[in-house]
Nucleic acid binder design. Sequence first.
DNA 1: ATACCATTCAAACGTTCGTTTGAACTTGGA
DNA 2: TCCAAGTTCAAACGAACGTTTGAATGGTAT
Lengths: 226, 226
Amino acid sequence: MPASPLRTVKPPHETRTRILDAAEELFMQHGFEGASMRQLTAKADVNLAAVNYHFGSKDALIEAVFRRRLDPMNAARTAALDAIEASGKPLSPEAIIRAFVGESLRMIEDAKGGGRNFIRLLGRSYTEPSKPIRVLIGQLYAPAMERYKAAFERALPQMPPEELVWRMHFMFGTLSYTLAATDVVQLIAGCKPEDRHDARLLEDRLTAFLAAGLTAPLKHPVRKAA
Amino acid sequence: MPASPLRTVKPPHETRTRILDAAEELFMQHGFEGASMRQLTAKADVNLAAVNYHFGSKDALIEAVFRRRLDPMNAARTAALDAIEASGKPLSPEAIIRAFVGESLRMIEDAKGGGRNFIRLLGRSYTEPSKPIRVLIGQLYAPAMERYKAAFERALPQMPPEELVWRMHFMFGTLSYTLAATDVVQLIAGCKPEDRHDARLLEDRLTAFLAAGLTAPLKHPVRKAA
DNA sequence: ATACCATTCAAACGTTCGTTTGAACTTGGA
DNA sequence: TCCAAGTTCAAACGAACGTTTGAATGGTAT
């Protein structure tokens, strides 16, 4: 990317891409601190110094891993919302949920594992101890989040804004845990493993659950304290 | 605790307790790998070698942190379920949910921060990269989980077992994310910070959301594929 | 051919990690 | 009083970490 503005067309970022792919997988498997630069560069089949050369530091690599996928994904989420609103439909809560959830699950199916690794990494990162990472994720999510919040407010005019914020948090939690825990945690026995990879079925289940939770009856319309 | 079977009554495990408390807080703040033995022992005001002397290793300390709180908490969950069943009430899904959720939130309120640290640490650990930790948590949860699954099956006889397992997963995800993210992630703007610490209010909100999701209507009673 | 620049490479940097060591200290029972 | 066991302590261990360095390499335009 130096010298002339439009440049080589052959492998412009081959090494970068290999590093990002390896990082995605290893960060998912072992965490950000648990995955070392030596593991990472060995898996990517590049020199140890390549990460620092192309990204500057390990932290910058982590940021690049998120930016590569999160920006397009949230843009797609916003576009999905635009499409619904442009269709003139009544903008049901369930349709909004499906637009948001679907974009995550779509990524699980394609990219022969690449997107799946990232989705599971992402699910884990919402509860990441490292503050800079949480801040980064929050920034990358902010625009799409604002749009969806506004959409829910219009679809549910009778819901108090404060209650809506809570329920969006709950929904987000369900999604992120489900993505992170897919074939990872097995707290409840009896899961059919083959189902876990069927994104369409999972989308239906998740949407039904979340839509019911979001539109649950309000018990205490103006509750203040005990 | 060697020598005679019943022993000193003064500070039987003072150092151990101080280490566990410090570990709980630092693991929550920085993660298991991010919190070093030197930070940890400095915060506990004990010698660096004390952890290895009393627990054997850092991994054994992590396990001890979980066992100290998780065993009593899940025992309390089981007891809460026993109490509901003994009362002769009709065993509503909402009551079961409230018993499970309430036990987590109860711990947030008391212990002037001690329990709260653990609850948030726990929320993060469900998506922990380290496999031994996930396995340990699964083991410690298994007995209570079996009881609750059976209770839900009786309270919702019309629900297919497979669907129930999924919805329990969703519920667990919502709870764990909510606990971990309390005043941590601020993905959606507009949260009232003071509310985040009111466990009673949070319990009501969570229970309403989860009960609605759990009992959501079944769209595809015997759905197989697309 | 030659000069140039981006990239790759092996080697080493200093730091921090979890753990171990062996001596000092405290304490309760013969 | 003295011993022995439990505990604390300062110091050091080797290993692994992220990063830096400076020379070799490869392709492109002059």
